[in-house]
Amino acid sequence: MGRISKTITAYDKNCNEFNEKFSEFTPYIQKITEFINLLEPGMNVLDLGCGPGNVSRQLMLSGKRYVIQGIDLSEEMVKLARKNVPAGDFSCRDIREISYRDESFDVIFLSFCIVHLNETEMLDLLQKVSNYLREKGKLYLSFMEGKNDGFEKTSFSEEEIYYYYHSAQRVEKILNDNHLAIIEITKQAYQESDGSVTTDVFIFAEKY
């Protein structure tokens, strides 16, 4: 079983555990709230690697109205997203194979989804994202750094999931090379279930 299929199988099996852990996870909610404060009502939003719709749900709870599309490769996650955010449009697709017209969206979220993409896949996706954003469109991007790539057990899954740990410096360069100006970059320590510490990276960027 390949890294993607094994990872998606783990997410399918543990979608409820993931939803329970992260739907009210304060550090992530705070960062998304900060980002939402940059947005205007009525914006067209693309939530890539949407999982159970945690980001989209928070958008709707903000009191602002958005047009939301969400994509995830886990069928069970998509089912949860549709339940959690009935007003959203969620589909089970591979984010590596998406295709939209240029300048289709005002906002794109990549909340901990590039952690499952290798360097080439990540570069390709960020180039697409830049094309899909309108001028002054906003990007929310989060990922981890600080470990070696590979399969891991997690706090929500005994089944192993494959993670890539991208360099923040490398990601910043890719964004700058693709007309995405950094608004803010922050790092937070994340305590793993085995006692180790991973660095979560959060980037807000704007298309120019």
Rank of each mutant, 00 (worst) to 15 (best):
D94C: 05
L59S: 06
I8H: 01
Y100H: 12
E97K: 15
E121L: 11
S167N: 09
T199A: 00
G63N: 14
V107T: 13
H116T: 05
I183M: 14
E119S: 08
R96H: 08
N16W: 08
N44V: 04
Y140G: 05
L61P: 08
A189F: 09
E158N: 14
N54R: 12
I8G: 00
L80I: 10
R65I: 12
I4T: 13
T199F: 01
F35V: 02
G137V: 05
A87F: 13
E172A: 08
D72Q: 10
D12C: 09
L141A: 06
D124K: 10
T120S: 15
L61M: 13
I98P: 04
N16Y: 12
R96D: 07
I203N: 06
K83I: 15
Y11N: 04
M43W: 05
T154E: 14
H116D: 00
L125S: 02
G63Y: 10
E24A: 13
S167I: 09
V67C: 10
S91D: 13
V45T: 10
S130W: 02
G88E: 11
F35Q: 00
E135K: 15
V197N: 00
I68R: 05
F18S: 01
D200C: 07
Y163C: 03
G88Q: 09
L125I: 09
N84A: 07
Y66W: 02
N54G: 08
Y28I: 08
F18T: 06
E40F: 03
C50N: 07
S196A: 08
E172R: 15
M60C: 11
Y132P: 02
R93E: 14
K13T: 14
F109K: 06
S111D: 06
Y132M: 01
N118Y: 00
D106K: 08
